[in-house]
Design a binder for these strands. Structure first.
Length: 295
DNA sequence: GAACCGTGGTC
DNA sequence: TGACCAAGGTT
């Protein structure tokens, strides 16, 4: 087994590649705000770039600052979320905007620890905003970073099912000493994972790290860990909830309970989902068996 | 830690 | 064709 490539070697290979190959994404442009970065990071959670782009642009027009979103209704946030999926993210972004306005003087916090207190902001998003919006030396570990490190350094086809301390330690150890390089390092690795070192069919022929990649040098062994459990969809509560929220999103005003219940055949499941949506704050019940997005 | 939370594209 | 996957977070 060959030794894993050193941090220095990886930097020399990945950073020039990123300088050439990086995509021109609006939340990476010099004129974007920390708020724009935060919104992009939440939208990009489990959601492809191509689907996020138009919604992000629209949000920036409607709500260019946290206070603008905070002044809107949570239902507006859910409506403008469109079909990005996981609409609770829209709700949490609205709550985060309110917290930023009320607790942080209207400015997105620049400290990871403070960011982490915002609704919908976990370890990844806090580190990403600190690093990308404020140039902080944060350790950003997302699914792309984990996969690139698993292959190039550890020699495994795929990372473990859940993030380990060893992975975080590895990511931290690979952060360049130079601040300017560190500022682009994580996003460069993420870009490599998104464009080249992909989960299904990695394009090793186009990879700047291929010559030193531990996984390649080991003969690209197949994934030997536990099989990854795919989430079912047909007949799930999520499908039922999705239909109800879609109906409310596209309706001009309140919707009759009868119409809402018509989207799902199973009475017990339908009622359970509607109750859960109300409990989650995604749906607001009105007098007379009517419902709407929260105001 | 496992389960849950949407949606649509891909091979 | 359908399982897998996409810049995770919360409970």
């Amino acid at each position: 087994m060959r030794p894993a490539p050193t941090a220095g070697v990886l930097h020399e290979l990945v950073l020039p590649w990123y300088a050439e190959q990086q995509r021109d994404l609006p939340w990476r442009r010099p004129d974007r705000s920390p708020w724009g970065v935060l919104v992009s990071e939440v939208m990009l959670q489990q959601t492809p770039v191509a689907r996020v782009l138009p919604v992000w642009e629209r949000w920036m027009e409607l709500w260019p600052a946290p206070a603008d979103l905070a002044a809107a209704s949570p239902g507006d946030a859910v409506r403008e979320w469109g079909r990005l999926g996981y609409p609770r993210r829209a709700l949490r972004l609205h709550a985060a905007a309110t917290a930023i306005r009320d607790l942080h003087g209207g400015a997105v916090p620049d400290a990871e620890e403070t960011l982490r207190t915002l609704p919908g902001v976990g370890d990844y998003t806090a580190a990403a905003v600190a690093a990308f919006a404020f140039g902080r030396r944060a350790t950003v570990v997302d699914t792309n970073v984990r996969r690139v490190h698993a292959r190039a350094v550890t020699g495994a086809a795929l990372p473990a099912p859940s993030l380990t301390r060893a992975e975080v330690a590895l990511a931290t150890s690979l952060l360049p000493d130079d601040d300017a390089e560190a500022a682009v390092w994580h996003v460069a690795v993420m870009e490599l994972g998104a464009l080249v070192c992909t989960a299904r069919a990695p394009r090793c022929g186009a990879c700047p790290v291929a010559t030193v990649c531990a996984w390649r040098l080991a003969g690209s062994p197949a994934h030997d860990g536990p099989p990854r459990r795919g989430q079912r969809w047909e007949g799930t509560d999520r499908q039922c909830r999705g239909r109800m929220v879609q109906l409310l999103r596209e309706a001009p005003g309140p919707v009759e309970g009868e119409r809402l219940r018509a989207v799902w055949p199973d009475e017990a499941q339908r009622d359970r989902c509607l109750d859960a949506l109300v409990a989650d704050g995604l749906v607001e019940p009105l007098e007379g068996d009517r419902y709407r997005l929260p105001v």
